[in-house]
Simulated scan of single mutants.
Amino acid sequence: MDSPAPDPIVPDPAAVALARILAIMARLRDPADGCEWDRAQSFATIAPYTIEEAYEVADAIDQHGRGMPGALDALRDELGDLLFQVVFHARMAEELGAFDFAGVADAISDKMIRRHPHIFGGEAASAGWEAMKAAERAKAAEAAGRAATSVLDGVPLALPALARADKLQRRAARVGFDWPDADAVLPKIDEEMAEIAEARTTGDAERISDEVGDLLFSAVNLARKLNVDPEVALKKANSKFEGRFRGIEDALRADGRTPEQSSLDEMEALWQRVKHRGA
């Protein structure tokens, strides 16, 4: 009796899809037959697109959270755009002989296994999560030929300013440099407001800018002590403002006018009306 035929090997769909996008990227960057625009790019020119795609992922997630139809389809597409950015950077690094996409994937896999010894085996971690990350930052600094001398090392300069302020404050708080609670921050905000008022009397634009920056930094401190993400809070405030101002425009349009053709008092009255409707 003949032996049963072995089961056919079914390719992993994820592996097939990944191989496809890597091949597409290689073709786009081909020196002879590739896309002229893609061949001309560098890490620096692609970086803004990478940041933009990350924000578009966040926007799709926000749409899903608000129950908007099609949000998960949008998230799939935006995650694909973000993945393409990773593939693009990895391909350029491979062309320089530095690393390739496999190296990127292996590096993050190794890091996650190292940070979760209680999940993937090995001895229990003797240091906490933050201590492990600090050790990793020190190792990276050593490899780059510089000393890691500050708990603030490694906070990316490219972060949005509010998010970076929050991260800097959290780092400093780990070593005890922090306000005890939100009540302690409030007087600091009053102090910064007074310093802005004083700076305005001088007419010194640079000083005024500095004092406004200090106020914003203190506001981030207050948000942190209240367990509020300042970036998310400001995003919500932006959305609220946009919705209410569009309401003003709609009301004026119904009256055959534009904001330019109305007074501030009229627009303020419409703002209050929109606000009271819960917008």
Rank of each mutant, 00 (worst) to 15 (best):
G97D: 01
M132L: 15
E94P: 10
D106N: 09
A107T: 03
E123R: 11
W129G: 00
I113L: 01
R114P: 02
G121H: 02
V104T: 00
K139F: 01
E123M: 10
D100V: 03
K111N: 00
A127S: 10
A141S: 14
S126F: 03
G128K: 07
R114F: 13
E136P: 13
G121Y: 01
L96K: 14
A124C: 08
W129C: 03
M132E: 14
A138S: 09
A138I: 14
A135F: 02
E123I: 06
E130F: 07
K111I: 07
F101W: 15
G97T: 02
F120L: 11
M112E: 09
A140S: 05
A134T: 11
E123D: 15
H118C: 09
G121S: 01
A125M: 12
A127N: 10
S109G: 05
F120R: 05
G103W: 05
D106L: 07
K133Y: 05
S126H: 11
F120D: 05
G97C: 00
A134R: 15
A107L: 06
A93D: 07
A138L: 03
A131G: 15
F120H: 12
A135E: 15
E94C: 07
K111Q: 02
D100E: 08
I108W: 04
K133L: 13
I108K: 01
H118I: 06
A135K: 11
D106I: 03
R137N: 10
D106Q: 06
R114E: 14
E130M: 14
F99W: 03
K139S: 06
W129S: 00
K139C: 00
S126C: 08
R115M: 14
G97M: 01
I113K: 01
A102M: 13
F99V: 06
I113A: 01
E95W: 08
E142V: 03
G128R: 08
P117L: 05
A134Y: 01
I119G: 04
A140W: 04
A124V: 11
A93Y: 12
F99Y: 10
A102C: 09
A140Q: 06
I113G: 00
D106P: 06
D106H: 01
A141G: 13
A124S: 13
I119F: 12
D110G: 01
A93R: 14
E130G: 13
P117N: 05
K139Q: 07
E123S: 09
E142K: 07
F99I: 03
E142Q: 07
G122L: 01
D110N: 05
D110Q: 08
K133C: 10
W129T: 08
D106M: 04
A124H: 13
I113V: 10
H118S: 14
A141L: 12
A135Y: 01
F99L: 06
S109C: 02
A125D: 15
S109L: 03
F101G: 04
W129A: 06
L96H: 10
A131K: 09
F99A: 05
E123T: 12
A105S: 10
R137Q: 11
G122P: 03
A105C: 07
E136L: 15
W129P: 00
G128E: 08
R114G: 11
V104F: 06
I119Q: 11
A140I: 13
A140Y: 04
L96S: 11
V104K: 04
K111W: 07
E136I: 15
A93T: 15
K111E: 00
A102E: 12
S109D: 05
M112A: 09
R115S: 07
F101H: 13
A107K: 06
V104L: 08
A127R: 13
E94M: 11
R115W: 03
E130R: 14
